[in-house]
Nucleic acid binder design. Structure first.
Lengths: 335, 335
DNA sequence: ATCTTCCATGAAAACGTTTACATACGTGCT
DNA sequence: AGCACGTATGTAAACGTTTTCATGGAAGAT
């Protein structure tokens, strides 16, 4: 079937194209009777406005782009869900470019979206101020997620890793553990650094007599396992271990089990993220949960606000809370 | 900064807009020296062609739409990854509409994408032939994923649940189990029905003396737990239980453990999907893995082929294999 | 030297909308 | 009755590309 245009509707309704446009969009400036006739004609012909033509003249695509790195299951899907839900509520479309590693790929993806989107949601480790300056036209509104960019030229939305980690340390202290070790994440990772920071801050503040005990890791289960072995070799074994993410906690737990220690009786354990597995391992894992859906939703809402009033709202930095999920591995229930 | 157009580039390079277009697109029909000058001018001005204008005249958006239901973590992210990778390799953009339940929502989402995409990838339980006829213009190429639609008017790409389930039954038989029970999924779910079918077919074929033993479930962990209890009440206890998905297998395993049975010594267990948890529970779960990334990739490639040659290729139905992942729960290693 | 052929180039139309502007008509006022 | 005004409608321009067609000049053939 040949595509049917606004002209066909105009002919069918016996009015001009201008009236069709008015009737179908605002509804204003057109008589009730005319509007009725136009709507009927449009429905009868199954008319669908040509998106490109509208974009061209309106200079609006009603689409926002999401630039994402290679992301893991739960996090990715929850984030998209949050974004998607909020976007649909606003009649915005969602253009996605995901799973690219490397700054070059990210740049290419960013450029490819240019001109198709009204705004961008960006979550990427490779993104820094310089990158944005050269790849993102300043006219394009953007919200950065989990980004270290402090530039203040861009809107940033971060998870409050510091507060989350700090709260977990405090919880472990409350339960009675004094010597708390920390398994850190990759050095270049923003989240990892923030969690490290939260751990150190909380230790300094709430357990000033203790010294920070940080083992390095890279967020992988394997590195958690190695860290666990290393901790067992220390002269005075820690009473509790706080891993910067759940996967490392899982690896660490295996190391402890293999060494014949039982968690949490002999040594307590906590993670960060609350991945689904945390609920299913034995003992179940105490961890810090991030409301990822909220992260996505909030980011999109912030971006939408930027679209409405481009100039008026200055760049802001917002932060999203986490909550502690107490399960068995921290020993809160056994003492 | 005012948007810069092809005209600005033309002026800068001292040629006509036509030459700019030619130089930047095909590169053909233009002298090497002119092409050079144009590319330099474009680069200097940071020219980015206006996508909408191009779409309007070309009648191509280079975008494909993905319509997805409310999907779980791993599956969703892997599927998108597969689609995204293949799409980017072809220079296609990805417009996503996910997490809608209900046929009305799906219809709205489908319609909203009209005119913005060159083709559609559709994965939804609500989609049947009638739905498509009334919501999908026949001019829009589409590939259906995991769909029961046999219509042959549309391209369909399914996971070979039947073969996967059948292979698992055979494996359990090979290991020495004769009395194999099956925990079925939701009745209206296409995947669930296919797996049921595979179980029954394999039993009839490879263990003709045994009768099929099917307990109903709904894919939830809770329903798996209930099914486990029910199985334990049967007069002659099955030697192995095959759950239609991993979550039910997990629930079932908990029921067995609570009853004091050990898996796989007292009773063997297998699932379907290979969700990440399968690797982390104790005992680790034998299951059927679906290469979801391949599913997404293959679907997109099929769609891309449709875009290239809309008429030539008739609707096809393709099916994607699964593989058995042998872990501890089936007892293959203890006998 | 003239004719043909080829090819790079430019002018202009076309894509389907929205919207600024002009027009015409009815209504209320003086 | 005449005038101003508001409002529904239509006409046409504009958005930024791609592409068809015409044009001109260079190169090759006679």
């Amino acid at each position: 079937m040949a595509t049917i245009t606004i002209k066909d509707v105009a002919r069918e309704a016996k009015v001009s194209v201008a009236s069709v446009s008015r009737a179908l969009n605002g509804g204003t400036g057109v008589t009730e009777e005319t509007g009725q006739r136009v709507r009927e004609a449009a429905a009868k012909l199954h008319y669908i406005p040509h998106a490109a033509a509208r974009m061209l003249i309106t200079r609006r695509s009603n689409t926002i782009g999401a630039l994402l790195p290679d992301l893991y299951g739960e996090f990715f899907s929850e984030l998209i869900r949050g974004i998607d839900l909020a976007a649909r509520a606003r009649g915005l479309h969602l253009l996605i470019s995901s799973s690219h590693d490397g700054v070059a790929e990210a740049a290419a993806a960013l450029r490819a979206m240019q001109g198709r989107v009204d705004g961008m949601l960006i979550l990427s480790e490779h993104v820094d101020a310089a990158f944005l300056r050269s790849n993102l036209p300043e006219s394009l509104p953007a919200v950065l997620l989990n980004s270290a960019v402090k530039n203040s030229a861009y809107d940033v939305l971060n998870v409050d890793n510091v507060a989350g980690a700090s709260a977990m340390v405090r919880h472990l202290l409350d339960v009675g553990h004094q010597r708390i070790a920390f398994i850190a994440g990759p050095e270049h990772n923003f989240d990892a650094r923030q969690r490290d920071k939260g751990y150190r801050a909380a230790m300094a503040r709430y357990a000033p007599k203790m010294t920070a005990n940080v083992i390095s890791g890279d967020f992988s289960e394997e590195s958690g396992y190695r860290a666990g072995l290393e901790l067992l070799r220390q002269k005075t074994r820690p009473q509790a271990v706080f891993a910067a993410n759940d996967m490392m906690a899982v690896g660490c737990m295996n190391a402890f089990k293999q060494a014949g220690l039982s968690v949490p009786e002999d040594i307590a354990l906590a993670g960060f993220d609350d991945i689904p597995i945390a609920r299913y391992i034995a003992p179940t894992l105490t961890t810090v949960r991030v409301r990822i859906v909220d992260l996505g939703r909030t980011a999109l809402e912030r971006l939408a606000a930027l679209l409405e009033a481009p100039d008026q709202s200055p760049a802001s930095a917002q932060t999203l809370g986490c909550e502690i999920v107490v399960r068995e591995s921290c020993g809160a229930n056994v003492r």
